[in-house]
Write a protein that binds this DNA or RNA. Sequence first.
DNA 1: TAAAGTGATGGAACTAAGTTCCATCACTTT
DNA 2: AAAGTGATGGAACTTAGTTCCATCACTTTA
Lengths: 189, 189
Amino acid sequence: MARWEPNAPERLAQAALDLFAERGYENTTVIDIAQRAGLGKTTFFRHFQDKREVLFGRGTTNDLLAEAIAAAPPTAGPLEAVAHALDAAGRQVFTSARREFTVRRQAVIAANPELQEREALKNLTLIASMAEALERRGVPELTARVAAELGALASSIAYERWSRTGDGDDFGEIARRALDDVRAATPLC
Amino acid sequence: MARWEPNAPERLAQAALDLFAERGYENTTVIDIAQRAGLGKTTFFRHFQDKREVLFGRGTTNDLLAEAIAAAPPTAGPLEAVAHALDAAGRQVFTSARREFTVRRQAVIAANPELQEREALKNLTLIASMAEALERRGVPELTARVAAELGALASSIAYERWSRTGDGDDFGEIARRALDDVRAATPLC
DNA sequence: TAAAGTGATGGAACTAAGTTCCATCACTTT
DNA sequence: AAAGTGATGGAACTTAGTTCCATCACTTTA
């Protein structure tokens, strides 16, 4: 049994998402968030670097994707390994259980430039860790970077589609199709 | 003749870059910057949205690239149009005259996550405007997005190389080579 | 030449983000 | 029962960023 109400970070993140959705990111103070979670401002900043970070908390996605790339069959080419990673994202991030949460979160981010900045940078580090994971498979540096970029593009297209589909649809499959589309659309000159 | 010392934004930007390079972004207050430029805090925020923006002021690069893509020969493919845009960037942004400034600026950005976030988002809008410009040439949406992404990747590789070369080297040429390298490295599976 | 106009500026006062320090509280271990 | 431990909250602080208003330098009009 815990000493205090458990899961302070989760409660803060939930309170933040609710408030951001209700009245907007700008019109929500950190004190508002902490109060709704039954905590103080100090505790908020003990769990999150800053106000934006409350929406980006679990940064384990980098490792998740890198591990999936490492675990792809040795015969798989770079883009196939990336597809493997997108599959993993579908199984652990873009699940139907977390669907509503994810969609609300993305809507909040889309409404605020400060949050978009944070997401843009997180996305760059995500691309970098995919590229590194590919290099560890023996993929040449530049090819790895291109493959990671194409994977990120496919992922964002796949999110677009997934967020509009019914509950049964698997992100992994959608992402594979998106990656195929991207490959087919890649210009040669 | 101007009423006050002219070019307040330029003076502020120069003072900011100098101070950031001297003592770091975090250890420089907006008041420090304004004082060195002979101005007040209020005037700083009249010219720049926020402290980060002082390093990203002239946002005309988007239009520059879009116009260069529009002006590319009608026969040019998507990547050739992008190469045209990188040429234009070389002629107006990555010039040998602005070389020292640009390199110092990039070094300051590389040293601070807050600035990296701003740059990451600016880069996304830059990619978006290149993609739009390509679509206006009749390039299909997805192909346009991929071409713009590959162009951005080539540009960052080209900057890497350009920042290390001697003064005579032309960014446009370096970027064309980088784009060729990217194309050659693009994985098909 | 004098008066009114214009636009950039600076200062003061304010809110909110984020930090630091210290006391407290809830529960655990000795 | 007493000491220990880790999460918490409050107070006080610095800085980013906003708002409002007065002022100043120069221009235009009378």
